[in-house]
Design a protein around this nucleic acid. Structure first.
Length: 201
DNA sequence: GGTGGGATTAGCT
DNA sequence: GCTAATCCCACCA
């Protein structure tokens, strides 16, 4: 059946903005002992190596951001605010230091497990934020630096082509003028805080 | 419906 | 010491 293939390295090696846009509609899959969890990617942000002070890689390689300089298709997972994780996919050539932050998913499978891991009864609140989706999908620091090309955490291809909208990125203090956030139009699972009010009014 | 503050930790400066 | 690509809850309207 078409559309069930794992995205290959070449997909992630491209221009980071293009990858961020093309990831919308693709399916993040985590195979766990208790069962598989899957969600359709509906919101992303691009982080660039040049002229982007908001990018973790902008001040060179450190222990924290090391995975961001890895090969295309590597996972970059970091701890934020001392208690949450955010999940990125590394893009371009090894050593460049660019990535796409996955900001929201539409839950597809393993929803009962997501409820358990999140501790919420509302489906809309399972994966509509970068730290929420990590908790729902069971993604944590152990996934930092692993390959999404051949592990139990992968991204599947899909023929879906959602209508794409863009905005500034969320939660950053620098680089706010750049339109590097992308999301599927009219999808209820895009992260709550901004989307409609500020930019679609 | 909207807002303001607290939680909590590793790594940078 | 201070901050961070966030989330949640209490409180006000």
């Amino acid at each position: 059946m078409s559309g069930m293939n794992i995205l290959p390295e070449e997909f992630f090696k491209e221009d980071t903005v293009k990858v961020a846009q093309r990831l919308l509609g693709k399916v993040l899959v985590h195979n766990l002992p208790e069962g598989v969890s899957m969600g359709k990617i509906v919101e992303t942000e691009a982080y660039l190596s040049k002229d982007d002070p908001a990018c973790h890689a902008s001040r060179g390689k450190t222990k924290r951001n090391e995975a961001m300089f890895g090969p295309a298709g590597m996972a970059y997972v970091y701890l934020i605010y001392g208690m949450y994780y955010c999940f990125n996919v590394v893009t371009r050539e090894e050593g460049v230091g660019e990535a796409v932050l996955i900001r929201a998913l539409e839950p597809l499978e393993g929803i009962q497990h997501m409820h358990q891991r999140r501790g919420t009864s509302k489906v809309l609140n399972l994966t509509n934020g970068p730290a929420k989706l990590c908790q729902a999908m069971g993604i944590n620091k152990e996934h930092n630096g692993i390959s999404l090309l051949n592990s139990n955490l992968t991204i599947l291809d899909s023929q879906e082509k959602p209508r794409i909208q863009s905005s500034p990125r969320i939660g950053i203090k620098t680089g706010v003028d750049l339109m590097l956030r992308f999301y599927a139009a009219e999808n209820p699972y895009v992260s709550a805080s901004i989307s409609r009010k500020t930019f679609e009014k």
